[in-house]
Design a protein around this nucleic acid. Structure first.
Lengths: 194, 194
DNA sequence: ACCTGAACACCGTTCAAGT
DNA sequence: ACCTGAACACCGTTCAAGT
């Protein structure tokens, strides 16, 4: 048990360890508390070592955002699938999963949505694609079931994501209390469904 | 004309000059391009001088956010008042003013909405209070005219602000093109009014 | 009252050198 | 292939000193 030499720790998984540590630091100390040097210190490696895995600080943040998208996509899909067939409750479950993520990892969510995607969409992380397509499916189902308003599903998808992110931002910024989450979600679902 | 000695420039308005320069830098180079030292350099003053006016970098950002709220409140109120009596067009004008601000000063808007207000609401800048009460008035008018859904106006106000901010975030982050702004606003107004 | 300039600790980034 | 450690330029913050 554990006779592998210490350097095994920094063998091929330093990248993963750095990402995990970065996510924790982000959650506990916010984005300003996240520095490459401190990260290297925490993982017991020299301050130049992360360079092998992330070209610069921005590259680390991008990778962090990518893992965040993947996890959010997982959680939203799981929330949808765990729910019964009633569309309203499915929509409500998806929205709740989004806000739950925002409350638990607000700084990470900011990072994910701050990443300028101005360039070609090829730069979109896989998790983001999965997330957006999941929301797209949800919208199309709602329109088919005639519980969501008619119209371009793409436009409705954008508006739904905007609403979810807006609610999340309200709570993570402290402009709305966590108590009001359920009310906001109820009102939002009520607004979209008719 | 202009016989006042050079030091008049740094006389009592250094604070205002710093704020103006900071807003410009924020608009042109983003939040990461904004440093106290660079700011001091740009205004031709020693790097320690801003300390007299802003206790630290965060204090400068807070002041910047406060001026941003004041301007946004002005612009939204003006947009509402310039519009005719039809409620839908008033709501649409207010929403458009918000998004216009977001497109022009996205980094500043992020700053305004990122400022943690966890503490007592006494810390809310005057402009923010004015902005929120303006939106509150708008919501109450819409409910009175029976064009907005019934229910707690406070909850509806929160949801409206969330939607506006979500749309703005979509555009400033590049996840939606500026072309889609009008569509998004149309859809949002359509969603809230019935 | 307001500003200067040196000082300190920290950071991101680069790069020659080690293994 | 991966990591170390010195180096460089930059930053925020503090503080004695000037006017």
């Amino acid at each position: 048990m554990g006779v592998t030499d210490h350097r095994a720790y920094h063998h091929g998984n330093l990248r993963a360890v750095l990402l995990a540590e970065a996510e924790r630091t982000l959650r506990e100390h916010g984005p300003d508390g996240l520095s490459l040097r401190e990260l290297a210190r925490l993982t017991g490696v020299s301050h130049g070592a992360p360079r092998r895995h992330f070209a610069d600080r921005q590259a680390l943040l991008d990778a962090l955002a990518a893992t965040g998208f993947a996890r959010l996509a997982d959680e939203m899909c799981a929330a949808i699938e765990e729910t019964g067939p009633d569309y309203r409750t499915r929509l409500r479950a998806a929205a709740a999963a989004f806000v739950r993520f925002a409350v638990h990892d607000g700084a990470l969510l900011d990072l994910m949505f701050a990443s300028k995607t101005d360039g070609h969409h090829s730069a979109l992380p896989e998790g983001a694609v999965r997330l957006f397509s999941a929301v797209g499916d949800l919208v199309r189902q709602g329109q088919q079931a005639q519980v969501l308003p008619r119209g371009d599903p793409e436009r409705l998808r954008l508006l739904l994501i905007a609403t979810l992110q807006g609610i999340a931002a309200l709570i993570t910024s402290g402009r709305a209390h966590a108590d009001q989450t359920d009310d906001l979600l109820d009102d939002a679902v009520e607004l979209f469904t008719r």
